[in-house]
């Protein structure tokens, strides 16, 4: 299997998990801006041996899980993160895939690295707001959140999603966002990090957050 390598000036090494569902270009471009050494790979062995993983994703949960399974990446990610303690950042659909399950496109189990399930925003929750939730929105971060170090208390980030995780009863809440209801905007628990928004599309706020993830 093909792995593409991009060399930067810094010592940071990041592996972007390529399973055919991500907007890899923009994540790659942000990491290159941060001068990282980036590997784009769909090889389970590479994933298992990477200290820093990034799971992007746009599209349907079911298709994404299927694609991860076909490439044997689901087990590789779990072993790498749960077994070997390597750190991972899931972005947008990538965050949702780390959850327990989703009802998108039929019931599908997730990677179960975050103890939260993924459901569609309901009209009850959002009221007069439009679904999908598209655009920049402010998030409220926890004071001690590593991902938000050096950022203002309620920074703006770019969202585009119809499904969400809820923060209630969850440990590892890093930030929430209010869209009719409070939903989970960012998660961090030990070596598992995730954002529902797109840091790679959120100007300097997003670049700073990625920088914080690399340093965590």
């Amino acid at each position: 299997m093909e792995a593409k390598v991009y060399s930067g000036m810094s010592n940071e090494r990041v592996t972007i998990i390529d399973y055919g569902m991500g907007n890899i270009w923009s994540v790659l471009s942000a990491l290159k801006y941060l001068d990282c050494n980036v590997i784009v790979s769909s090889d389970p062995l590479v994933i298992k041996e990477s200290k820093t993983l990034l799971l992007p994703g746009v599209g349907s949960f079911r298709k994404a899980m299927k694609s991860l399974q076909e490439l044997n990446l689901d087990k590789a990610i779990i072993e790498s993160v749960q077994g070997d303690g390597n750190k991972i950042l899931g972005i947008c659909l990538g965050m949702q895939l780390l959850g327990t399950r989703s009802s998108e496109d039929g019931e599908t189990a997730g990677l179960n690295l975050i103890s939260a399930s993924v459901e569609e925003f309901s009209v009850n929750e959002v009221g007069a707001f439009k679904i999908p939730h598209i655009g920049f929105d402010q998030v409220s971060s926890q004071d001690e959140a590593k991902l938000f170090k050096g950022l203002p208390g309620t920074p703006d980030f770019y969202f585009v999603h119809s499904f969400r995780m809820l923060p209630s009863g969850l440990s590892g809440i890093s930030a929430t966002c209010r869209y009719g209801t409070d939903f989970l905007a960012a998660y961090e628990n030990d070596n598992v990090f995730a954002t529902q928004f797109h840091p790679e599309k959120s100007q300097t706020n997003g670049l700073m957050l990625l920088r914080n993830f690399l340093a965590a």
Binding site: F136, G150, L151, Q203, T204, M208, R211
Partner: peptide
């Protein structure tokens, strides 16, 4: 409008 400090990263 969304806000960001253009020099956030640079300063950091």
């Amino acid at each position: 409008l969304p806000m960001w400090d253009v020099l956030l990263l640079e300063r950091h």
